[in-house]
Computed example of a mutant assay.
Amino acid sequence: MRISKWKHPIRHWRCVHTSSCRECKHATFDPRRRCSHYGCTNPRVIGYTDRTSGVHYDELDASSVRGTRWCDFKPIEEGDDD
């Protein structure tokens, strides 16, 4: 997903300065799909979605989360087996 820097300058700046979802602790990867599809399991964004839409999700599409104020990037640690 491409964010327009003219329509959404803050979100574009956050996307440019945040590392890729591949390096995030909250990201999940679905190898069954042909393209690279990352999901986000960040509790902040899941809680926000629960409150606003009334629907509970286990994960959301990472491209819709990255660059928003709820994106809480945490790098994967070396000893993590997740």
Rank of each mutant, 00 (worst) to 15 (best):
Y48N: 01
R11G: 13
V16G: 06
V16K: 11
T18F: 04
S53G: 00
H37N: 03
H56M: 06
C21L: 09
H12M: 09
K7A: 15
S20F: 11
S19F: 13
T52D: 06
C71T: 01
P43I: 14
H37S: 02
H17D: 08
R66P: 03
R69L: 05
S63T: 00
T49P: 01
G79F: 08
C15S: 05
T68K: 00
G54E: 04
S64C: 06
H12S: 13
A27M: 12
R32V: 13
S64P: 01
T28K: 05
K7Q: 14
D58Y: 12
P75A: 13
R33E: 04
S36P: 04
T68F: 00
V16S: 09
T68S: 01
S53M: 03
D58F: 14
Y57L: 11
L60H: 04
C35E: 12
G39P: 02
H17E: 09
I76F: 11
L60T: 02
K7H: 13
R51K: 08
P31F: 07
C21V: 09
S20N: 12
S64V: 04
C21S: 09
T49W: 04
D30W: 05
D72I: 08
P31H: 14
D50R: 10
S64Y: 03
K74N: 07
C71D: 06
D72G: 08
R11A: 12
R33V: 07
L60N: 05
V45L: 00
I76Y: 08
W6Q: 07
P9H: 13
T18H: 07
G79S: 07
H12P: 10
G47S: 10
P75V: 15
P75L: 15
C71K: 01
V65P: 00
R44I: 05
Y38N: 15
T49C: 05
A27I: 13
T68W: 00
W70K: 01
T41L: 05
T52F: 03
Y48D: 01
R11W: 06
K25Y: 14
S53N: 02
P31N: 08
L60E: 08
N42E: 06
K74A: 12
C35T: 11
H8R: 10
P31Q: 09
K25V: 11
E59F: 05
I46N: 03
G47F: 02
T28Y: 01
T28M: 03
R22C: 06
I76C: 07
F73H: 14
T52V: 05
V45H: 00
R14N: 09
K74E: 11
C35L: 07
H37P: 00
K7D: 15
W6D: 09
T49N: 00
T41M: 09
W6G: 04
T28A: 04
Y38W: 15
N42F: 01
G54Y: 10
H26V: 08
Y57V: 07
R66C: 03
D50P: 02
N42P: 05
C15F: 04
R66W: 12
C71F: 06
K7N: 12
C15I: 03
S53E: 03
W13I: 06
D30T: 14
R51Y: 04
G47E: 05
